[in-house]
Simulated scan of single mutants.
Amino acid sequence: MDIKVLGPGCKKCNTLAEATNKALNELSMDANVEKIDDMVKILSYGVMSTPALVINEKVVVSGKFPSVSEIKEFIEKA
Rank of each mutant, 00 (worst) to 15 (best):
F65D: 12
A23E: 01
K58G: 07
A23P: 09
M39D: 08
E26P: 10
D38C: 09
M48D: 06
T50C: 06
Y45P: 08
S44I: 06
L27M: 08
V68R: 01
L43W: 06
V60D: 03
E34D: 13
E26Y: 10
K22I: 11
D38T: 12
E26C: 06
I36K: 10
E26A: 08
N56Q: 12
A31N: 05
G63Y: 08
K41A: 14
G63L: 09
M48V: 12
G63V: 03
V68K: 01
L43Q: 13
S49M: 12
D37I: 12
S62P: 00
P66T: 14
K41E: 15
V59A: 01
P66A: 12
I42Q: 06
T50Q: 02
M29I: 12
L24I: 04
N21Q: 13
P51R: 00
V59M: 01
I42L: 05
L53S: 05
I42C: 08
F65W: 09
V68I: 14
E57F: 04
N25T: 11
K41F: 08
L27N: 07
I42A: 09
K58M: 09
K22H: 11
K64R: 15
F65T: 13
S62A: 15
S28D: 14
V59T: 04
S62L: 01
P51C: 05
E34P: 00
T50F: 03
A23M: 02
S28W: 06
V54A: 12
S62H: 02
G46R: 02
P51N: 03
S69V: 04
D38F: 08
L43D: 08
V60L: 07
E57K: 13
K58A: 13
S62R: 00
V60T: 02
S44N: 11
V61C: 14
K41D: 14
K22T: 13
V61G: 07
K58T: 14
V47S: 00
N25I: 05
V60G: 03
N56E: 14
L27V: 07
S62T: 05
A31H: 05
V61Y: 02
K22V: 11
V60M: 06
V40W: 09
N25G: 15
G46C: 00
A23V: 05
V60F: 04
K35Y: 09
V60W: 03
V59H: 00
M48N: 06
L24M: 03
S69K: 12
N56L: 07
M29T: 07
N32D: 15
E57I: 05
V68Q: 02
V68N: 04
G63K: 10
V33E: 04
I36M: 11
V68D: 03
L24N: 01
I55S: 11
K41Q: 13
T50L: 01
N32I: 09
D38L: 09
I42P: 06
M39W: 08
D30S: 14
V68M: 04
K58D: 11
V33Q: 04
A52W: 02
V33A: 05
I36C: 11
K41H: 11
M48I: 11
M39P: 01
G46L: 01
T50E: 04
V59W: 00
Y45F: 15
M48E: 10
I36P: 08
E34F: 03
D30R: 10
N21T: 06
L24C: 03
A23W: 02
I36N: 10
F65V: 14
E57S: 15
S49Q: 10
V60E: 06
I42T: 08
A31W: 01
K41M: 11
A52F: 04
M48Q: 10
E34C: 07
V59E: 01
L53H: 03
